[in-house]
Write a protein that binds this DNA or RNA. Structure first.
Lengths: 196, 196
DNA sequence: GCAAAGCCGAACATCTATGTTCGAGTTGAT
DNA sequence: ATCAACTCGAACATAGATGTTCGGCTTTGC
């Protein structure tokens, strides 16, 4: 049951505390990307020392929260149907991604302050591949333009969703309007060029 | 010659030092948005105390550098001809803005860490109006789509140029390719919808 | 040439956050 | 029931950065 290298299973209270810490850290970092360890521990209902017992540094905690959030988000996107007309699939992906990005964009800011860019990239890998393959298929089928690098189109997707989130939080865009605006923008940017 | 409230003109060496500090701060903050006051003073060839003699806090210095950079950039954009076909004008504006954004995007990061968002916004006001009025004219003339808010299109302009800069620094885009990619993207996103 | 304005480095005072240590108390697995 | 695992708060040790004070030296303006 236990491989040689396996660490002994944590005790139940420890597991509960770890879960509470991760949840509290997520909440705190969303409110303030610079939230300190003390605040996080307090919100988790745990002593600072206990927190350090489970995460040996703030950076490690941020990394854990970030990785777990990306994992959760990726899992949530499993529910999105990406088959059929690529244009329709893109709209569905936008509708789902929009909420996720809006919710967690502060978390990204926190991650960028304490994690190397390359680590952030690898953490994004799975959800990124999702978009990437949809775009690739759309190009193959002639639904999307093929005169721009796929990587660029992926970056653009991210960027536009992100920008919409910023505009909403700046009060220049309604939360209800956002998905439509994003879609109108990306569909136009992704459409094949008429005379190219 | 001197109004009652006018401060006495600074001595020549003081003026030189202030200029050196601003230049050094710009360079340092571009390399590292978190550069500290000591490094900046050292690069300016000036004591830390002297720096504090001219800028009472780090935040004030960052603000000064940022404001001055935006001013300079705005002035540089005066050379761009925004008349004639809005599509062509957009391309010219992209070509010029691209270098500026690429050069100073780290500075923006520095500003965002120490200035209130609203102050950042007002500092951007002039260059922003430039884009805004070009877009408005393009819409009036039927060259650009009118089914999206002007504010959104302005944000998109910023966002796309910014994203291109990031892609270049990540090595996924060539500096030479960037302007073309930006243009292809924005022209498509701004074009009037064929059947709307 | 002289006073004022400016410069300098070094040391000091805070402040804030991270991470650690201690000793004593709880809780959970078996 | 027992023992290890876990938790707790408080205090401590670092570390880095900001901003200030001091006394003496240099430059500039007139």
């Amino acid at each position: 049951m236990s491989s040689p290298t396996a660490e002994r299973a944590k005790r139940a209270d420890a597991q509960r505390n770890i879960a509470a810490i991760l949840e509290a850290a997520r909440d705190c970092l969303i409110e303030d990307p610079d939230a300190n360890v003390g605040e996080i521990a307090k919100r988790a209902g745990v002593g600072r020392v206990t927190l350090y017992g489970h995460f040996s540094s703030r950076a490690e905690l941020v990394d854990a929260v970030f990785a777990r959030t990306l994992e959760d988000s990726d899992h949530a996107l499993d529910a999105v149907d990406l088959s059929g007309d690529p244009r329709a699939a893109l709209d569905r992906l936008i509708a789902s991604s929009w909420h996720i990005v809006d919710q967690f964009r502060s978390l990204l800011a926190a991650a960028q302050r304490s994690m190397p860019p390359e680590r952030i990239r690898t953490t994004h890998e799975r959800p990124l591949r999702r978009i990437s393959s949809l775009i690739a298929r759309g190009r193959d089928e002639g639904s999307f333009r093929a005169d721009l690098p796929v990587d660029w189109m992926v970056a653009l997707f991210h960027s536009v969703v992100h920008t919409a989130a910023n505009e909403v939080s700046a009060g220049r865009l309604t939360e209800d309007d956002a998905p439509g605006v994003i879609s109108a923008t990306l569909q136009a940017a992704f459409a094949p060029t008429s005379h190219g």
